[in-house]
Design a protein around this nucleic acid. Sequence first.
DNA 1: GGCTTTCGCTACGACTCGTAGCGTAATACC
DNA 2: GGTATTACGCTACGAGTCGTAGCGAAAGCC
Lengths: 221, 221
Amino acid sequence: MQSRTPASRTGRPRSAAADTAILAATREALVELGWSKLTLGDVATRAGVAKTTLYRRWAGKNELVVDAVAELFDELELPDRGSLAADIEGVVLQFAAILARPEAKSGLMAVVAEATRDDALRERIRASIVDRQMRLVLAGRARAQRRGELPPEPDPAEAARTGDLIFDVVAGAVVHRTLVSGQPADEEWVRSFTRVLLLGLTSSAGTAQEAAGPPGTRGTA
Amino acid sequence: MQSRTPASRTGRPRSAAADTAILAATREALVELGWSKLTLGDVATRAGVAKTTLYRRWAGKNELVVDAVAELFDELELPDRGSLAADIEGVVLQFAAILARPEAKSGLMAVVAEATRDDALRERIRASIVDRQMRLVLAGRARAQRRGELPPEPDPAEAARTGDLIFDVVAGAVVHRTLVSGQPADEEWVRSFTRVLLLGLTSSAGTAQEAAGPPGTRGTA
DNA sequence: GGCTTTCGCTACGACTCGTAGCGTAATACC
DNA sequence: GGTATTACGCTACGAGTCGTAGCGAAAGCC
C-alpha cells in the first residue's frame, strides 16, 4: 500500500500486523479526536508501536489518513439489482453509509483539503479512493447499456466526459448532502436523487434549451 | 460578523480597519501557505496587528477562516438571464470561479472537515456561506416558476425537499469537480451539467422506473 | 478630566513535530 | 551456524506553535 518491497529481499521484513494495527488505530483516533487533534504519537501508542515506526512507513499525517480511510471503501460493490435505477440507488446508499461514519467524515474531507496544495497527495487519493468509485460508475453504465436502458456511446472521448460528469454529480451530491448540509442521505433522498439523475440521463435527445420551458418565453435577456 | 457590540457603548471602539486587514491577511496566507501551515501569529504579522488582537475577536483558526472565506461569496448574484438554463449556467459559472481560487479551495474544505466535529462551526458556515447560496437556488426556482419553466409546488414541505435536493446536486457537483476530480468547471462542463439537471427536473412526470429503460428488461434481479 | 475598552508588546508553560542515535530482534544468504 | 541487512522499540532533542497573562499606552464616551 504505502511501501513497495521490490528490491529489498534481505533483512528483517516489515510487520504486516503493525500495518493493520496502525491503520485501525488511525481510524479509532479519527473517531475519538477528529482530524485536527489527531497526532501521530497518539496513533503509535494506540497501535502499540513506536512513533519512529510510523515515520518509517508514512511520510506524514496526510498519507496515513488516506490509507486508513481508503480501506473503508473496500466494501463498495455493485451487484446486479435488475435495473439501472436499482443499481444507482443501491450503490449510492452504500456510499452514503460509508460517508456517514465519523472516521470517513472528518478524515476524507481533511485530506481532500490538504490535497488542494499537494499534487502527490491528490494522486494518492485518486489512486486509492476515487478510482474505485469511478470504476463502479463505468461498470453500472456498461451494464445499463447492455440492458438497453442507456444508449451506447460511439465516441470514446464523449463517453469519458459523460462518465466524469455522472461521477461528479453522484459523488458530489452525496458528499454535499452528508457533510455540508449535514443531513442523512437516506432512502427517501436517494430515491428522489436517482429519479432526477435518471431523467436527466435518459431524456438525452435535444438540448436543455429545447427541453426546458415553453418556447417564446426566453432568449431576450 | 464575529462580534456584536449591542451593550458596549463606552470605551475605545474596535478598529474596523483591523478587521478588514486581518481577513485580507488570512486569505493571503491561505494562498501562500494553505490551511495546515497557516498560523495565527503569521496572520497577525501580515495584518500589522498584535496576535492578542486576533484572539480577542476570533475563537481560533476555524472561525477566522470561515469569515475570511465567506467574504468571497459576497459577489454571488443571480441576474435574470432570460431562461432557467441561462440562469443556472450563469450562477454555476460564478460559483465555480470562486471555488477555483486557491484561498477558497484550501480554506473551505478544511473548515467543512472541521465542522464535522464542531456543531457551532457548522452553524457558522451555514449562516455565513451556505444560506446565501441556498437563497439563490430558491430565487432561481421561483423565477422559473413565474416564467412557466417549472411547475408550481403546492406542498411547501415537498418544495423544501426538492430545493434541498437541487442545492446539494448543484453545489456538490461543482465542488466535487473542482476539488476532488481536480478539473475545471468550465463552460463546456457547465453546459453538460445544466442539460442533465434541467432534463431531470422538467421531465418530472412519472417515476424513474417508468422513465428509464424499455419495459420488460428489468425486475428479475 | 475620568471612565472604559481596546491595542501592542513581551513573556511564558505546554504541547507537538520530525529526527537522531542506540541496542536489539528478525529474516535472507552463504 | 554465522554474517549481513533491515526493521523495531526506546530515549532524547531542538524547533516551532499554541493560547494566555500582564503591562502601559491609546482612543473613544460622559
